[in-house]
Design a protein around this nucleic acid. Structure first.
Lengths: 242, 242
DNA sequence: CGCTCCCTTGAAGCTGTTCAAGCGATGTGG
DNA sequence: CCACATCGCTTGAACAGCTTCAAGGGAGCG
């Protein structure tokens, strides 16, 4: 199961910026394990001391917070190449949980070694900060959705943002993107009820904004969705991978 | 106007973790300027190339995004000791704006020098990442509010979180905290209309949750607000200051 | 004195929630 | 192999929370 970083499939993707051999060797040294988990598995449990940092190697996950009375808010969706658990590595216990949305594979980076990265590999340390900032910018945009967009705009914004993130990863083929979210996930991410999410989705489908077959979503006209959502952020062409 | 970091008033506060002389000298070397701005001034303009990173020395600010049609979402409020513009320092242009809410004083750290910090001062580099993660955790909680709490719960959550942040800074005296927000700011931060914000505020006041005099807010019973909001996160006792 | 800014209040109406019920696909144990 | 449970999606109907529209009032300032 172990995948050496030298043979990392993910890194071949254009989305990631090139890396030199020393840094790659260092990352390979840091990587303690490569773990496969089933959909629904808990990657990080809320409120627990957290020893590890992860990179999502394959599959989808999501980060969420739950109120004591059970209401759940999904904070953002995690796609391949994204870091998992940075906040948890900074503070004692993480305030949030992370759950596998599909079957996933994750690279395990022990928390202690992350510190050695700051001491020895400033470029990579900077990359960690960069990835943290990028994650925040995604949460920012979700907050704009929940706070200021109406239901169908929220859905449009979610879809177009996932589309752009998947696109740079090379996961969109002819406007078709993988889409494993249930309507409950969408509702929890956007601050909507399940019923209203269903009706708004149906409305957008009837408008011809997209089509869904099984777990793929077909986007004929991304620009239309973009302007419906008023979502114009672009993914950076080159990003770090740790 | 220039304040050497050795004489930093802010750093005397217990909230900040101790620092050694070498690091302090380095920060002092990094600090290019100390600027005072009036309430309403633009600290960072959305969509522009951004050369600087700032630390808020005194006063309040807020970070926000605006949709093309004018709807505005406040992402989080910036209090003394918080970093301003980290995302902007990572990417080419910042997606958001930052505005002074009250008169403010800010320390100016040139973007280039931030990189030298990663090369020379790993501990401080780690602190930058830490501060970024903490900012994200605040945005997380705001997203939970906008997505899953009802109007008066949102207001309660906002007030209690500001209370806790101000408290560790020593800015709460006998349950009285500075509160310079207008109802429009609150509405924009919580994803509510101005009218409904006003009515929900009045309701909470009548319930005896707090009282307002001029720009001060009196909290007799923080615990009551806390459980109304279902907001139980605690501020870390010791945080870095750069 | 008049302007602006912020707060306040009432009323009407819409967007989204909650409750309720049903359907098809998938999976499982008897 | 069928009965049964589960899961995700769908739809209708009633209701509520919040928005929008409208108007007015008080404090501060030039």
């Amino acid at each position: 199961m172990r995948v050496p970083c030298f043979e990392c499939e993910l890194r071949r993707c254009d989305a990631f910026k090139p890396i030199n051999d020393v840094e790659l060797a260092f990352i390979n040294e840091m990587k303690r394990d490569h773990v496969a988990l089933r959909a629904g598995a808990e990657i990080i449990a809320a409120g627990t001391e957290q020893a590890e940092l992860y990179t999502l190697y394959a599959g989808w996950a999501f980060r969420f917070k739950t109120l004591p009375d059970g209401r759940r808010q999904i904070l953002h969706f995690v796609l391949p190449g994204d870091l998992i658990g940075l906040q948890g590595a900074m503070f004692e216990a993480s305030q949030y949980g992370v759950e596998a949305l599909t079957d996933v594979e994750i690279c395990v980076l022990p928390r202690r070694k992350v510190w050695s990265l700051y001491e020895n590999m400033p470029e990579l340390a900077f990359d960690v900060t960069w990835l943290g900032s990028r994650e925040e910018s995604i949460v920012d945009e979700n907050l704009v959705s929940a706070g200021r967009r109406r239901a169908s705009e929220r859905i449009a914004a979610l879809i177009i943002s996932l589309y752009k993130r998947l696109n740079v990863l090379g996961l969109v083929v002819n406007g078709a993107m993988p889409f494993p979210l249930t309507q409950q996930h969408i509702a929890d991410a956007l601050g909507l009820s399940l019923v209203h999410t269903n009706k708004s989705l149906a409305k957008l489908r009837k408008l011809g904004m997209f089509a869904q077959i099984n777990s793929t979503l077909l986007l004929s006209n991304p620009k239309a969705l973009e302007s419906l959502a008023q979502y114009f952020d672009e993914e950076t062409p080159k990003r770090p991978l740790i």
